[in-house]
Structure formats: structure tokens, C-alpha cells
């Protein structure tokens, strides 16, 4: 029963996690590679503009050679992995440029949107959860009702409603996302409100559990004020499960970004992805999927870390 040093254990844990992440990434690449092969039709024709276009056999052969489509599947797969490892995501069929720089250029806007939305959603959820547990049946019912409705709001409808209200009727904010703060308000709200609905439900449950727990009774018995009980003792407990949801929230925000960027005509990863799906620009879709997968994996790693910081009980194990 050799007791392993704590530092070694932490290092080993981190290494295992990193290995797991790389494994998932590799499987994502593999799955995508083989899924793409299910697309009916000749990829060479797709590259040259779809089945309808007039293409000479010579042109097709040239494209096949250029993209390595005449090689055996396994060779193509390995070549693909090798390219991915160097950060080469291939070349777009429709836009005639390299996918990696194209998508990375779009990434910033989407990330900004997602981070802002996550922050706003947290604030909204926390505010609602705190308010609705203040006591009383009415606050409780209103809070829980608002959360359910918010969680059920589809992004596209919420966006439309916000545009009608704030742009068409009130004229306060632009209906199209312009550069600058004003153009960000509606897209961020659209993404944040439904997420806040989900997070609020979780936070309220755990906030209540904390408020009813014996340690809060102990704190009150020491003379702790209501505010102290909430800020010193309960908020962290309420935040823990919501932190653990960050990976999921990231996915939900990216999905939302596809819709929101389209509606508000905002450049970004989501809109690029949707356009690529519509014109069946395979390399762009694959590239976007891989980038999102990397983002998701990073997010889960970060979540792990954040949980360890917020919950010391996890550190000692």
C-alpha cells in the first residue's frame, strides 16, 4: 500500500485526462471522416460544383488526384489524420480558400458572443434563483414559471420577438448586428435567456438545498444575517452544479449561435457552418465540427478545473 505523493497523483490525473481528451478528439476525427464517406455521389463532382454541372472526365480525374480521392480509403484516412495533426483542415469547395484560416477568422466573434451570453445567463439565473427563494409561494411559483418558459423559448423566435420589440417598434437597437456594443445586445440576450432558464432551475434547487441544510442553521444560530447566509454559505453551493453544466452550456450556445448569427446577419462560426451545410461544402463543415469538438473538450477540462477550485472536497480525493 505504497502511498503515492500528492504531486505525483495530481500529475498522473492530469495526464490521464489529457490522454482521454486526445482519444476523444481522435475518435471525433475518425467518426467524421467515415461519416462523410456516406454522402451519396462522387465527391469530385461535388468539388466541381455538384452533379448538375458539366464536367469533363479529365477535370474529374485531375480533382481526384489533387484531393487524393483515387487512393485507398485507409491511405486517405491516414493522410487526413496527418493533415489534421498539422492544423490543415483542407480547402473549401465553395469559397476556394483554406478552411483553417477561414474558420479561425470567424471564431473570435462567436466566442465573444458565447462568453458574454454565458455571463449574462449566469447573472440572470442567479438573480432569479436568489429572488425566488426569498420566501413565499408567489415568488416561488413566478420564479419557477419564468424559468420553464425561458427554457422553452426557441432562439429563432426570441430573436424575432426582440427585433420586433426593440428595433421595429421602439427603434432602440439595430435589427442587424452592427459592430459595437449596441449590435451585441440583442444577440447576447437571445442566447442568454433560454440558457438562464435551464441554469436557474438547477441553481434554485441547490440553493434551496443549501438553505435548508444544518450548516446554514448553524450559521444562523451564530447570528449570521440573511445576506451573510446567502453570500457566505449558499451561493457557492448553488453554483457548483451550474459550473458542472458548463460543457453542456457551451454546446447549447454554439447551437444557438448558428441560429442567432444567421438572424442577426452576424459573421461567425455558426453562420459559416450553416452556409456550408446548405451548399454542402464538406471541408468547411468538417472543419467547423472539429473546431467545436476541440472547444467542447477544452471546456470540459476547464469545467473540471473550475469545479476543483470551487469545491475543495474534490481536491482531496
Amino acid at each position: 500500500m505504497a502511498e503515492v505523493g500528492r504531486g505525483t497523483r495530481v500529475f498522473r490525473g492530469a495526464l490521464a485526462r489529457l490522454g482521454g481528451a486526445l482519444f476523444v478528439l481522435w475518435m471525433v476525427a475518425t467518426l467524421t471522416f467515415f461519416a462523410i464517406r456516406l454522402i451519396p455521389g462522387d465527391p469530385a463532382e461535388a468539388i466541381l460544383g455538384g452533379p448538375g454541372s458539366q464536367t469533363s472526365p479529365e477535370a474529374l480525374a485531375a480533382v481526384r488526384a489533387e484531393y487524393g480521392l483515387d487512393q485507398p480509403v485507409l491511405v486517405q484516412y491516414l493522410a487526413q489524420l496527418a493533415r489534421l495533426a498539422t492544423g490543415d483542415l483542407g480547402r473549401s469547395y465553395s469559397l476556394n480558400q483554406d478552411v483553417a484560416p477561414l474558420l479561425i477568422g470567424q471564431l473570435g466573434g462567436t466566442l465573444l458572443l458565447a462568453v458574454l451570453a454565458l455571463g449574462v445567463a449566469w447573472l440572470l439565473a442567479l438573480g432569479l434563483a436568489t429572488w425566488s427563494t426569498r420566501g413565499g409561494r408567489v415568488a416561488w411559483s413566478v420564479g419557477s414559471g419564468l424559468e420553464i418558459v425561458a427554457a422553452a423559448l426557441p432562439h429563432f423566435w426570441l430573436a424575432t420577438a426582440l427585433i420586433v420589440l426593440f428595433s421595429v417598434w421602439l427603434g432602440w437597437l439595430p435589427p442587424i448586428s452592427t459592430p459595437g456594443v449596441a449590435g451585441l445586445v440583442l444577440p447576447v440576450l437571445t442566447l442568454a435567456v433560454p440558457l438562464a432558464g435551464f441554469l436557474g432551475q438547477i441553481m434554485r434547487e441547490s440553493l434551496l438545498t443549501a438553505l435548508e441544510s444544518p450548516f446554514v442553521l448553524s450559521a444562523r444560530a451564530r447570528g449570521e444575517s440573511e445576506r451573510g447566509v446567502r453570500w457566505v454559505h449558499s451561493i457557492r453551493h448553488a453554483a457548483l452544479p451550474a459550473i458542472s453544466l458548463s460543457g453542456w452550456a457551451f454546446g447549447s450556445l454554439i447551437s444557438g449561435a448558428v441560429v442567432v448569427e444567421t438572424i442577426f446577419a452576424r459573421p461567425g462560426l455558426g453562420r459559416t457552418l450553416l452556409n456550408a451545410v446548405t451548399v454542402r461544402d464538406v471541408p468547411v463543415v468538417v472543419g467547423a465540427v472539429l473546431i467545436v469538438a476541440v472547444g467542447y473538450i477544452l471546456m470540459t477540462l476547464l469545467t473540471d478545473l473550475a469545479q476543483r477550485i470551487a469545491d475543495p472536497r474534490l481536491r482531496t480525493r
Binding site: 441544510s213 444544518p214 450548516f215 448553524s218 457566505v232 454559505h233 457557492r236 470551487a310 475543495p312
Partner: peptide
């Protein structure tokens, strides 16, 4: 039980 009567996070 002090396990639940003391704040487990502090």
C-alpha cells in the same frame, strides 16, 4: 452530525 452542520466548502 457535524459533517453537515459545518459548511463542507469552508
Amino acid at each position: 452530525d457535524a459533517l453537515v452542520s459545518l459548511d463542507p466548502l469552508r
